[in-house]
């Protein structure tokens, strides 16, 4: 489904990604782990099409289509979804208006009619329930005044609504207490399906207790330095990133759960 070959990317002339190679097939769940500053978030942003990052080399294809040639909105319509590490607050645009505009943009792309307000409301309420968000959140400004956990649940709710082919979750576990983590994990597990791939970017292994990945990759210094099965995450938790010869001060502070 997703094929990344020798991907290099820079921000403000500083190279962050230095040759990423990654193949993800439909139905698979991949986790990318790594210390802070290794390029995890950059990879997510580059895949989603953030113009602040410049791709200097390499290629990325989604089901054979050159992703790097597409605008951000076109990538989304082709099935890329990024759950943001820091979801943006947009006062003045209601969550409902935002979500309905997004859903209808996707439908238009597929040649389908707009969803009417009543139909949409029904659907939106259902997905809200799935991530334990009160439907009153639909009426509020996008992420406006949401707690950290509510923002993350709002991201997963959007993924459930938009049904992407590839969902990229950027540090979706950060800032969540254990209950919220479980709700978010349940939402992500509900997304798992044979025709969808999930790419989880995380610093800690605790999320992987709830969403069990098929593959784990360690990203350091802009390259994937080790890949393995889920046992690699457990090994990392036990031994720390230092085991692989990388320094990470934050990893030392990782909570024991």
């Amino acid at each position: 489904m997703l094929s990344i070959k020798n991907l290099h990317a820079s921000v403000e002339d500083k190279e962050i990604l230095k040759g990423i190679n990654l193949e993800i097939k439909a139905g698979e769940v991949h986790a990318i782990m790594g210390p802070n500053g290794s390029g995890k978030s950059t990879l997510s942003q580059v895949l989603a099409g953030n113009e602040a990052f410049e791709v200097t080399e390499g290629e990325v294809t989604l089901n054979g289509q050159n992703l790097l040639e597409l605008e951000t909105e076109e990538r989304a319509r082709e099935g890329i979804f990024l759950a943001f590490q820091y979801p943006v607050e947009i006062p003045g645009v209601s969550n409902l208006q935002f979500l309905r505009t997004a859903v209808n943009a996707m439908r238009k792309h597929r040649g389908e009619e707009d969803m009417n307000a009543a139909e949409f409301m029904k659907l939106a309420r259902e997905v809200c329930k799935q991530v334990d968000l009160d439907p009153s959140f639909l009426k509020r400004g996008v992420n406006e005044g949401f707690s950290g956990g509510e923002k993350k649940r709002n991201e997963i709710m959007q993924a459930l609504l938009l049904q992407p082919k590839l969902a990229i979750l950027d540090e979706t576990d950060s800032g969540l207490d254990i209950d919220a983590l479980k709700v978010v994990a349940d939402g992500v597990n509900a997304l798992r399906s044979p025709d969808r791939a999930i790419l989880m970017v995380t610093h800690y292994q605790r999320l992987l207790n709830h969403i069990v990945p098929d593959y784990v990759h360690v990203l350091a210094g802009g390259r994937i330095i080790k890949s393995g099965g889920r046992e690699l995450a457990l090994e990392l938790e036990e031994k720390g990133y230092g085991w692989l010869g990388i320094k990470d001060e934050d990893a030392a502070d990782a909570p024991a759960n």
């Binding site: 989304a76 990024l82 943006v88």
Partner: peptide, 29 residues
């Protein structure tokens, strides 16, 4: 705000529509 525009278009919303939404948001209240 560029970050807000990116957030909206990353959900498949067209760039033009994202600009309209954000501009309206500025005065909606």
């Amino acid at each position: 705000d560029k970050t807000s525009v990116f957030y909206l278009v990353s959900r498949g919303i067209g760039r033009r529509e994202a600009h309209v939404l954000l501009t309206m948001a500025f005065i909606n209240e």
